[in-house]
Computed example of a mutant assay.
Amino acid sequence: MKASYYMKTRGNYKSVGIVGLPNIGKSTLFNALTSSQAAMAANFPFCTIDPNVGKVFVPDERLDLISNMLKTKSKVGTQLEFTDIAGLVKGASEGEGLGNKFLGNIRQVSLIVHLIRCFEDKDITHVTADLNPIGDIETIETELILSDLQSLEKVLQDHSKKKSTPEVQLRHDLSRRVAKALEAGIPSRDVEIDEKEWPVFQSLHLLTSKPTIYVCNVSESDALTGNKFTDQVKEYSKKKQIEIDPVVISAKIESELANMESDEMKKEFLDAYGLTNNGLSKVINGARKLLGLQSFYTASEVECRAWTIPVGTKARQAAAVIHSDFEKSFIKADTIAYQDFIDANGDEKTCRDKGKQRSEGPNYIVQDGDVILFKVSC
């Protein structure tokens, strides 16, 4: 991955699309993520046609600890938006399997969770005769590349009809360079983009520009250790320099966990498979990392709340996340680092006495986990 790419894209969005071939467990994973049965799951291709969209609470142990410590009456976490996108097939860029519609749905999301079938089951139809996770990955990525090449071809054709200006020439030259990379099988997110090119690159809305997480769907018996197929995906991911390591989950286990009411039941269920945590938290937190999102907290006995902001956000803009008026009326941000807050057992006076509470100005860059009390003018 290119640092210049991620510096520009992270923190801008919160939407995640679940992508993959048909019949690999996307809807089951979506149901587990959203703790619902919103997506129909069935054993035939193109079961999902219109994308299902759901809000997913982000697992947050820090929020839980702060809330329990202060015995708050209310606890509010942050959310990500997940979209269950119908399965793509070879030829999607040419319209196969309703491909144009599905590719359009991918264009609307900010990050791709690429679900890969890594389980063998003769009772569940697969689009190919043999299970080949790497071949499945390459099928999807090839269709995304082909779709992007079609988009760039239109851009280059339009260039010939326009009067030449520095802006038009920049768009043309960048499109040619990205198209050349795509023709070599290199996704656009791996193309070096300089500062002046960046707005133009964003305006191209390329599918291969989106950061990606590989998620391996395995049988229940392989949820703890993975298998030879997940090993292949990990090696492929390493070769492609995918930033987030592939996540191994059993969508079936996750779906059953999502429908259990008590933490005790969930723990017993996980223990039966030798698992200590569910896999969904890895997917969700991996997505947050790639999107460049972090949390700060407001905490009192009345309410403990996590707020999502992009990494690098300044205090004045962070205040606006709570209420738009706070940006204009900002005075200061009384800030305590998360660990200092925990060490003081959530007591602000103790933090002040120990010099752990700081009065920060509008240009302070909020750190992940900061506990903040904003002071604003009335």
Score class of each variant (00 low, 15 high):
173 D>K: 13
52 N>K: 09
243 E>K: 10
200 V>Q: 02
46 F>K: 10
145 I>C: 00
18 I>W: 07
38 A>M: 10
368 D>P: 08
105 N>Q: 15
315 A>Y: 05
70 L>Y: 00
172 H>C: 13
166 P>M: 15
136 D>Q: 01
167 E>F: 01
7 M>C: 06
251 A>Y: 01
232 Q>V: 03
302 V>S: 12
164 S>I: 13
49 I>K: 15
243 E>A: 06
92 A>P: 15
296 F>I: 06
227 N>S: 14
306 A>M: 01
332 K>R: 12
61 E>C: 00
321 V>P: 09
28 T>Y: 05
225 T>R: 07
255 S>H: 08
25 G>R: 05
261 E>F: 06
166 P>N: 14
223 A>M: 10
212 T>N: 05
209 S>N: 10
109 V>W: 12
173 D>P: 09
78 T>E: 06
42 A>S: 12
146 L>I: 08
8 K>N: 15
373 L>Q: 07
40 M>P: 01
252 K>Q: 13
258 A>K: 08
155 V>I: 15
140 I>C: 09
215 V>D: 09
112 I>Q: 07
266 K>A: 05
154 K>Y: 02
335 T>G: 06
321 V>T: 15
237 S>W: 06
303 E>D: 03
119 F>N: 11
360 E>F: 04
64 D>S: 08
363 N>M: 14
138 E>W: 00
